[in-house]
Computed example of a mutant assay.
Amino acid sequence: MTAWDGEQGAFWVKWADRFDAGVEAYRERFLAAAAIESTSAVLDVGCGTGQMTREAAKAGGRALGVDLSSPMIELARDRARAVPNAEFLQADAQIHPFPEASFDRVISRHGAMFFGDAEAAFANLARALRPGGRMVLLSWQPGDRNEWASTFRRIFTANAEVPATPPAPGTLADPAATRGLLESAGFTDVRVSAVAEPMFFGRDVEDAAEFIEAQFGWMARDLSEEDGARVPGVLRADMAGHLSEGGVRYPSAAWLVEASR
């Protein structure tokens, strides 16, 4: 919680528009799966700076976005001034005492992958859903299926070998583990669908490189001076190969998780 409420949260606030633009290609399918109705009460978990909460509020009756980060919640509130039925709360969705059976939808765009205690978190969310309610999540597939993640990790570690480890259940990266986790929490009809979209990183190479260096630069701290000096050039060369009229884009892959209560 400390990181999200500190430097990491501040970083996401600084680059809020870029993070939203990065996954924009997933928005339409994610919202279609959520099927928010005009009377829906929606809980957006790990709402960040609130884009999906605002979208849910515009489609439904009311939407509550929760996040650990006070800087992100502050920006979310500021951006939702014209959306009166969107509310925001700094809270830990794992343990927050949401009123029982008070939401028709629980949604989370890449926010439900970070639970420290996933079993407790999803049990809490199941209690918050009304009978017949639905939960829709978007989570990343493993890194080796996301070219952007594997490429940037390779560049900033100078091709260091990173041992492959099985994805933990709470990361939602493994479909079988995700189904078991959600079913044990009280969800039914759990479906996990593979989705793939290009991910946006910047208008041009320099714009994208500035963003990625700010996000991944810490990985290069232990490199030798010689290897570290190569990183900027290697990064820009790779991005140049992914530049098109739509900016710098890399393939990405996610899981669309749907479940009922």
Rank of each mutant, 00 (worst) to 15 (best):
M135F: 08
S150K: 10
W4H: 02
A57G: 13
H242S: 05
A121E: 04
A80C: 00
K14Y: 13
A59M: 09
E161Y: 02
R29L: 13
A220L: 09
G247Y: 09
G133W: 05
R127K: 13
D20Q: 13
A80V: 06
W12D: 05
A173C: 07
H110W: 12
R145Q: 07
A25F: 05
V190D: 06
Q90R: 11
W255P: 09
M72I: 05
R153C: 11
L64W: 10
G65M: 08
G217W: 07
A35K: 06
D227L: 03
S108L: 00
M72S: 00
L129H: 06
R27V: 15
A160M: 04
E197N: 03
S40F: 07
V136T: 08
S108Y: 03
F11M: 03
V234E: 12
A118T: 07
R127A: 10
F114L: 02
G60Q: 03
E147T: 09
G233E: 11
T157G: 01
A253F: 10
G6T: 06
G133Q: 05
F19N: 08
V162H: 09
E210M: 01
D5I: 05
E258Q: 11
L235A: 11
A86L: 00
F216I: 11
T2S: 11
E87I: 02
R134P: 06
L125D: 00
E7D: 14
A33E: 11
R77N: 04
F30L: 06
N124M: 01
T157P: 09
W255Y: 12
R249Q: 15
P97C: 03
A185L: 07
A59Q: 11
S252Y: 15
A76N: 00
V136N: 04
D104A: 04
L243F: 12
A208N: 07
A16M: 10
A259L: 02
R249L: 15
F201C: 07
